[in-house]
Every structure is written in structure tokens, then in C-alpha cells.
């Protein structure tokens, strides 16, 4: 059991059949998450393969989180929120500049956390890819619109993922202050890894 403060990262091995639970302790907190086959880092989570194969833009209970090789890395086996984003990607200093202006360049961002934390298991810039945003609400519309909206999560809500093979779970607890993805107030999450029964 690990409490991950806002702006910090987590990486852990979840063995096949084991689970990871990510708990939004204070509500409305984005947990940017990447998954990697622990034995083949290039067989990594693929947001667009996942979206396409389930024919839905959002993740929820039952979503199979696919890799670039179309292997099921993990299954979303519990979700008390109901809907999570995997289109919006992670924040970076550079994307903050594009979205909010030059004055945000030196604000802390998820990409730095991914790189610092991922380095512990050999995940570098080349291995980073398009992530999941648990507890984040990014509605899309039939006319092609997309927006970052107020979160749907509240204190104590959680997701639980079951590993279908040995998986590295890499999380950045998002430090974003420039949009409502963290309710304008980034807060801690808790991560609980359970070994297979």
C-alpha cells in the first residue's frame, strides 16, 4: 500500500492474476497511468488499439486494456466512477506551453514524473506512449468536439485492474494546475498491489 502525493510517481510489478487498486483519496484527481508487458517493454499499453477494439472512447468496468500487439495486459475489473479517459494523454511542460502559454513552461508536469519514475525499470522517452487518465473526464461529441470537464470522481472512489500477464504499472499523480482535471487542487492517491491468489 502506497500513498502517492500529487506530483509524484509510482511504478510496480503486478504479476499475472494479481491486481492493482488506485484510490482517489480526496476526489477529482487524475492518475495518469501506463502499462507495460514486464518481459517486453515494447509490448505496451495502446490507447487507440484499446478504444478501437472495444468500440468506445471511454474506459470502464470490463474494458480490456490492450497492448500494441493486441494482448490484454490488464482488465478493468472494478470501477466505482463509471468512466475514464484515454484520449487526452499526459501533461508535459511543453504541451502546457501550447495550451496555456509560455508562463507555464516551468510548472511540474506528468511527463517528467513518467520519465523519472519509469527510469527505475528501463522505461525512457522512447517507451513513453499515450496513457490512461483514471478519474479524468474528457467528453467527446458526435460533431468531433473534445473537452476537459470537471471530474466525476469523489473521495474514496477507485478502480481495480487485474493483470492478465506480468505488467509494470507506471503512474504519475498529475500535478496539473491549469485545468479542472484535478479540481484545481492536486491531491494524493493510494495504490494497492495484491499478489495473485
Amino acid at each position: 500500500m502506497t500513498v502517492v502525493p500529487a506530483g509524484e510517481g509510482f511504478v510496480g510489478l503486478v504479476r499475472a492474476g494479481g491486481t492493482v487498486r488506485i484510490i482517489d483519496l480526496e476526489g477529482n484527481q487524475a492518475a495518469d497511468t501506463l502499462l507495460y508487458d514486464a518481459h517486453d517493454l515494447d509490448n505496451r499499453y495502446s490507447a487507440f488499439d484499446t478504444i478501437r477494439e472495444q468500440r468506445s472512447a471511454y474506459l470502464t468496468t470490463g474494458s480490456q486494456l490492450l497492448s500494441t500487439e493486441l494482448d490484454v495486459l490488464m482488465t478493468l475489473t472494478a470501477d466505482t466512477v463509471g468512466r475514464h479517459d484515454t484520449i487526452g494523454g499526459a501533461c508535459s511542460q511543453e504541451s502546457n506551453v501550447l495550451r496555456y502559454g509560455e508562463h507555464t513552461r516551468h510548472m511540474h508536469a506528468c511527463r517528467e514524473t513518467f520519465l523519472r519514475t519509469g527510469a527505475q525499470v528501463g522505461i525512457g522517452a522512447r517507451q513513453l506512449t499515450h496513457n490512461i487518465n483514471f478519474f479524468m473526464n474528457v467528453p467527446v461529441t458526435s460533431d468531433g468536439g473534445l473537452s476537459f470537464a470537471d471530474g466525476l470522481s469523489s473521495p474514496g472512489q477507485y478502480v481495480e485492474l487485474t493483470a492478465e500477464r506480468d505488467v509494470f504499472v507506471l503512474i504519475s499523480n498529475c500535478p496539473q494546475l491549469n485545468n479542472p482535471c484535478n479540481g484545481w487542487n492536486p491531491t494524493p492517491i493510494q495504490v494497492v498491489v495484491r499478489e495473485p491468489a
Partner: peptide, 30 residues
Amino acid sequence: LDRLNVPDTLKAQMSACVRAPMVLMSDRGI
């Protein structure tokens, strides 16, 4: 190592598809 980043492209321009006159953006904000 600086590649087309589709999520960053979409969220910065608030679009769920690519259409003119959007800019296709990279991992490092180029």
C-alpha cells in the same frame, strides 16, 4: 524521439478528429 502525439494534438485544439486547419503536434510541443 520527438514524434506526432495524437492526444496532445487533439486536446490542445479540443477536437476528437483531425481536420483543417489543425496543427499536428509532437511529444515535445513542436
